[in-house]
Structures are given as structure tokens and as C-alpha cells.
């Protein structure tokens, strides 16, 4: 099979777009994981709630920008409330307790949005200034909105890089990720730091939910598929590492997209069509999990661990 280079470029952009989306999710999750040692399955719920807030606000105001300006703080407030009420009590518990309690949170939130917004999906529209397409070199025409997602994701990555490597808060976060006891020893209010980190993670999940709104349907349970992918990302990247989350997210985004679009074709070229048609899609959707199992089996600390190797 001949791979059309233009198509390859397209799919690479699609992979990049999925990747930055995953990064928005993974950055928060990996910080919470690395600093508070908390497995938060409900991170996907925050993403979902962010999308619901955005869709509702856009429905009322008709403005995407206004929706964005209000939905992200609203999500943040909700996240902080969840941290104060439930998650805070879980920091010292074992992983099993954390998994179960946050699983309970998922059930709660999925049902709560159904009660508040009804069972049918909500839909957001793309803002007018992003509803067109961008013409790139080599005849590639890419939807402006998806381009905006990539831009937002990269901007957030830059912001986090600056925050973490050049500010005092960042220093504390770095210290927390590699040595939790030390942060306390520095005389920092650890509780406050934890809440702040959680709030940051929630805001990022809220941004992801907001950006996903105009592409996907906003519905109960939308957080789980992306949550599972996000876990794959942070495990591959190395828990607690923003750099790992970024690289892992791009890797997963690109591998998943390219796998889905080219693997069946590649298999068709090598095996007989029947085998290829059966195995291709299966292998494509299993690809990232295989990747994760391989990484864990050979490099359990992830590709870019936070703690100095």
C-alpha cells in the first residue's frame, strides 16, 4: 500500500490534536498523582462537567468566548469543592480505596449531569471566527477549530513549563513530585499546596472539556473514554512528570490516530485481505494498550520519570 503523504500529514495533525487534548487532561492528573499520590478516576468527570458548563453557558449567552471565560472558573470551583469534601480524605489511603471512592464519584457525576441536564446529549457550536478552515502548505486544508485546539494545548504546555521551572510554586510542585516529605519540611502549608495543585488540574480538565464541546456531543459518561487514554498517557510518560505527560500525550495521540488510519491498510498489503480485515481494526484499537504494557514491562517507571532516574 502506498501512503499518500498529504493524508499522512492530515492524520499527523489529527494525532497532534488528540495529543494536546490528552495533554490537557494528563497534566492535571499526573500532578495530582505525583504530588498527592492520588489516583483520581473522577478526573474525567471534571472534564465532562466542564463541557456541560460550557455548553449551557454558550446556550444562554450565544458566545463561545463568554462561555469559556465562565465555564473554566466554574469547573475549578466545583473541583476544589470535590477536593475539600472527598478527595482530601483519600490522600493517606491506599490506592484501592482511592480507586473505589473515585469510581463512586464517577457514578455520582454521570448521574448528576443526567438529573440536571437530562439524558439527551447537549451540543455546542464552533465560534464563528473558528468555523472555517486554514490552508496550509502542500494543499492541506485543516479545520480552524481543531487548529485552535492545538494552539491552546501548546500554549498551556508553555505556560506549565514556565510555571514549573521558573516560579516558586513550580519549585514546590517539583519538590512535591520527587520528595513529598521535603515540601512539608520547607514550612509550606501542604494542604493549601494540594488544593492549589488540584485546582490547577481541574482548570486544565475544564479547558479540555470546553474545547471538546464543539467537536463532540456533550453527554453523561463522555469523560471515561478520555480518562482511560489519559491514564495510558501518564503511565507511559512517567507519573508526576509534566514533560512525560506532554511527550506521552503526543505519542499516544499520534500512535492511536495513525494506527487507526493506516494499520488496516498496511496489514492488507502483507496478509490476505480476510486476515487483515479481521485483525487490522482490532490491532489498531489495541495498539496503545500494547504500547503501555510494553513500556511497563520494560521500563516500569515510564519513559520520562519525574523522580531523577
Amino acid at each position: 500500500m502506498v501512503i499518500d503523504p498529504q493524508l499522512l500529514a492530515f492524520q499527523a495533525l489529527n494525532g497532534l490534536q488528540l495529543g494536546v487534548m490528552l495533554f490537557l487532561m494528563a497534566a492535571g492528573l499526573t500532578l495530582v498523582f505525583g504530588i498527592m499520590n492520588l489516583i483520581n478516576l473522577a478526573h474525567g468527570s471534571l472534564y465532562m462537567v466542564g463541557a456541560y458548563f460550557a455548553a449551557t453557558l454558550q446556550g444562554w449567552s450565544g458566545s463561545f468566548v463568554l462561555a469559556a471565560l465562565l465555564a473554566i472558573p466554574a469547573t475549578l470551583v466545583l473541583g476544589v469543592a470535590v477536593e475539600l469534601v472527598v478527595l482530601r480524605t483519600l490522600y493517606d489511603r491506599d490506592h484501592l480505596d482511592q480507586v473505589l471512592a473515585t469510581f463512586g464519584l464517577i457514578l455520582f457525576f454521570n448521574e448528576a449531569v443526567r438529573i440536571v441536564w437530562g439524558p439527551s446529549a447537549l451540543f455546542m457550536t464552533t465560534p464563528d471566527f473558528l468555523s472555517g478552515q486554514v490552508a496550509l502548505p502542500f494543499g492541506i486544508i485543516y479545520p480552524s477549530y481543531r487548529f485552535a485546539i492545538i494552539a491552546v494545548g501548546l500554549a498551556v504546555a508553555l505556560f506549565l513549563y514556565g510555571l514549573i521551572s521558573h516560579t516558586r510554586v513550580g519549585m514546590l510542585i517539583r519538590a512535591g513530585a520527587s520528595n513529598r516529605a521535603m515540601v512539608g519540611a520547607l514550612g509550606v502549608d501542604v494542604k493549601f499546596l494540594y488544593t492549589a495543585v488540584f485546582a490547577l488540574g481541574t482548570a486544565l480538565a475544564g479547558i479540555a472539556g470546553l474545547m471538546a464541546g464543539p467537536i463532540l456531543s456533550v453527554e453523561s459518561g463522555m469523560g471515561e473514554p478520555i480518562l482511560i487514554l489519559t491514564f495510558v498517557v501518564i503511565v507511559i510518560g512517567g507519573i508526576g512528570s509534566i514533560r512525560g505527560a506532554f511527550m506521552g500525550a503526543l505519542l499516544i495521540g499520534v500512535v492511536d490516530t495513525l494506527g487507526r488510519s493506516f494499520l488496516p491498510g498496511l496489514l492488507r498489503a502483507t496478509f490476505n485481505p480476510q486476515v487483515a480485515n479481521a485483525a487490522g481494526p482490532a490491532l489498531a484499537s489495541m495498539l496503545i494498550y500494547i504500547l503501555m504494557a510494553l513500556v511497563l514491562a520494560f521500563r516500569p517507571q515510564g519513559l520520562f520519570p519525574a523522580r531523577a532516574a
Binding site: 493524508l7 489529527n14 490534536q17 488528540l18 463532540l216 473514554p225 487507526r260 488510519s261
Partner: peptide, 10 residues
Amino acid sequence: QPDYSAEIAA
């Protein structure tokens, strides 16, 4: 499936 970007590109 929520996102059809890869299929639309193809």
C-alpha cells in the same frame, strides 16, 4: 464513536 477526524481525512 465521537470523533471522525481521521476518517474525514481519509
